[in-house]
Design a protein around this nucleic acid. Structure first.
Lengths: 192, 192
DNA sequence: CGAAAATTTGACATGACTCAACTGGAGTGG
DNA sequence: CCACTCCAGTTGAGTCATGTCAAATTTTCG
């Protein structure tokens, strides 16, 4: 069930069979149907989620009342509202399944005990967060340096499967423009 | 000299006097004049920098040949090109002092040895990167949900000292619009 | 099959950019 | 200590990328 996660961890740090057992005793498993939430606006985010299979989106509601997607998570990614998770304050965001999804969850209250028993997980998560931070700054670079059209072209070049996998209006929101604009870009591209 | 850094670390993890000595033996110190670089485009980023005092900016050169500021670092922040630092690949970014600045530096080649001797630093950096990641996602939220004017107003409300501290054209670049646009917003604000 | 949701299309509006000219300080060298 | 230069900031006119809104069409799914 958790092989995905164990494999992922072992790419970065050592984890014996008995240590893996310890880890498993801390995990909860959950299956999500499309549109199930694992976090809703106003809740304190109690879990750090590892996506075993599927796709989640983290979004906020803007002042105008529309959904703005801040982050996608797919297979082998960790996702959470880390501000809410870390400081135990209510989240302004929601996390929802885009498709049928399986997650492994770490409860915030167990985190200290888990790290105490398996100190190598500190190293693992240091690397995970360091890379997530680097990736996030790269996104900021694209948001500010590229036009909407360039962002779309680059993204569909880099992640063609993903573009198939999520509805266009979600992709448009994530890339920072309107669904209408995306539709017009596609029409333009096809006509060439 | 390094009190700033030791105090910062001790906010998150324990560090005895003798452990602090070990850490210090791994650090290099450097004083920067305004406009000195600690990383230039094309170099592999060999260090993780802690800003003891001052201000650095991380920027890239866009296709149009203009500078785009991706990140500022001020007192008590870690900064680096973490993609280049981590994977030892050439960086597309440059890091430069905005004002006279003192930094403490960790050499990438010493990192593993440092973590081996002081495992609590893994926990420290896990927290640092987790928060940096959360802050970065928050920035993405502002970039996509708010207009240029809203971003400027919110930023100057939250960091009034910082707005004084850096030139307007750098602030404009960081916030994702042109210096002309910032100038016009200021004129508008003053006339009210 | 029918209703709801997603996508497309077109007309029009606008926030922000570009470019160029002008102003005002901050250094710098004679 | 003045004169000169250079860089940052300001201002205005014109333009363009992208947004808004509304209607038509297609797809999805109970």
């Amino acid at each position: 069930m958790y092989t995905n996660l164990l494999d992922h961890i072992r790419k970065y740090v050592a984890l014996s069979e008995t240590e893996a057992e310890v880890l498993l005793s801390f995990l909860r498993y959950r299956e999500l149907k499309k549109k199930d939430w694992v976090l809703q606006e106003g809740q304190v985010c109690a879990y750090n989620f590892f996506i075993l299979r599927g796709c989640l989106r983290l979004y906020v509601i803007t002042e105008k009342g529309t959904e703005q997607i801040i982050q996608f998570g797919i297979d082998h990614w960790w996702i959470s509202d880390y501000n809410s998770y870390d400081r135990q304050v209510p989240s302004g965001a929601a996390i929802q399944a885009v498709e049928p999804t399986e997650v492994a969850m770490i409860d915030r209250r167990d985190q200290a005990a888990l790290f105490a028993q398996l100190p190598q997980l500190e190293a693992y998560f240091r690397i995970i967060f360091q890379r997530a931070y680097a990736a996030s700054l790269m996104r900021i670079q694209f948001m500010t340096c590229l036009s909407g059209e360039e962002r779309y072209l680059q993204f569909s070049r880099n992640f063609p499967e993903f573009v198939q996998r999520v509805p266009q209006y979600m992709l448009a929101s994530y890339l920072g423009f309107t669904p209408e604009f995306l539709s017009k870009m596609r029409a333009k591209k096809k006509s060439r």
